[in-house]
Nucleic acid binder design. Structure first.
Length: 315
RNA sequence: CUAAAUGGGA
């Protein structure tokens, strides 16, 4: 059963949920009883795909077999509904888990805080943080990072840094993710200089900027119509041995398209192919959109066909 | 063996 659970989980994480279901069903055929973890893994697979409707069927199947959802099950579902933007259902499940005698833990609260942040309701996020303290729970590094990201996304950098201080004061070391959230906050305000400073200060904290750190700033430069600076940063990445990914490339392509530099954009696209990085749906959509806007429908259709041929489905 | 946080398109 453990082997199956591991395999099913791996399929879910690779977004091969159909194979996951195949394995799940074949367990029963082989006479293996799925356990609570199996069900949790399957629930998580559905949640990750945004297939929340299908979770009730699995929950029914669970209860038919006599399994009662545990904290992990609830956290999985709460997070799924949060990502879907269904705050109501997330809060309902939070109440239900308490009603069923389960104690929401730090993971539950971090999900709810993230949910509120993404909904732009930072006051509500802080309320949950306070509620955690009342219940004797301590936020962890991820909880703080979630909040810092929430404030950064809203352009409330002072608040974000206040949380950072609190985080450090509580004995936590900000991670690369924490700093990346702050970098993004600076970029969203168009303050690329500051973002770059944060990036540079990371080294002194014993942290190495990663592909996200760079892609964030590259995206920020492109939004500011400064593609040249984006190229500079891309060079710096190459120099440091940080491998760009599809997002890094798509950001640059997007910046070039916006400047109507479609020839350059296509060159970058070719470089991407050349380095063996598979473009994804976003990359294609960016280019197709740009060619359409230029009235070059032939190239747009060529790319459309190319993406289908590569098994990337247009949406 | 399962749950929470950071970057790109329309």
């Amino acid at each position: 059963v453990v082997t199956y659970n591991t395999l099913i989980d791996a399929c879910c994480k690779l977004r091969r949920i159909d194979e996951a279901f195949g394995l799940f069903r074949s367990m029963v055929i082989k006479g293996l009883e799925p356990n609570l973890i199996t069900f949790n893994v399957v629930l998580n697979g559905l949640c990750r795909e945004g297939r929340m409707k299908e979770t009730s069927g699995i929950l029914d199947e669970m209860s038919r077999k006599g399994y009662v959802p545990d904290e992990v099950s609830y956290n999985t579902l709460i997070n799924g509904y949060c990502k879907e933007g269904n705050l109501h259902q997330a809060l309902f499940l939070h109440a239900e888990m308490v009603r069923n005698g389960l104690s929401p833990g730090v993971v539950t609260y971090t999900s709810l805080i993230d949910c509120m942040c993404k909904a732009g309701n930072l006051n509500r996020a802080i309320e949950f943080l306070d509620q955690m303290h009342v219940r004797g729970l301590s936020p962890n590094e991820r909880t703080y990072t979630t909040l810092i990201n929430g404030f950064s996304q809203q352009g409330l950098l002072n608040e974000a840094y206040r949380v950072l201080d609190e985080m450090i004061g509580s004995g936590f070391s900000p991670s690369v993710v924490t700093y990346n959230a702050l970098i993004n906050g600076h970029c969203l305000l168009g303050r690329i200089e500051e973002a770059t400073e944060v990036l540079q200060n990371m080294d002194g904290k014993g942290l190495t900027p990663d592909v996200v750190s760079y892609s964030t700033i590259i995206g920020g430069c492109c939004r500011n119509h400064d593609v040249d600076r984006a190229f500079q940063l891309k060079k710096e990445m190459d120099h440091k041995g940080i491998l760009p990914d599809a997002i890094t490339y798509s950001s640059i392509i997007r910046g070039l398209c916006e400047q109507r530099r479609l020839i350059d954009a296509f060159d970058v696209f070719r470089e991407m192919l050349y380095t063996g990085l598979p473009p994804d749906e976003f990359t294609y959509t960016t280019l197709i959109d740009a060619y359409c806007k230029e009235g070059d429908l032939n190239r747009a259709f060529d790319l459309h066909d190319e993406m289908i041929q590569k098994g990337i489905l247009p949406d």
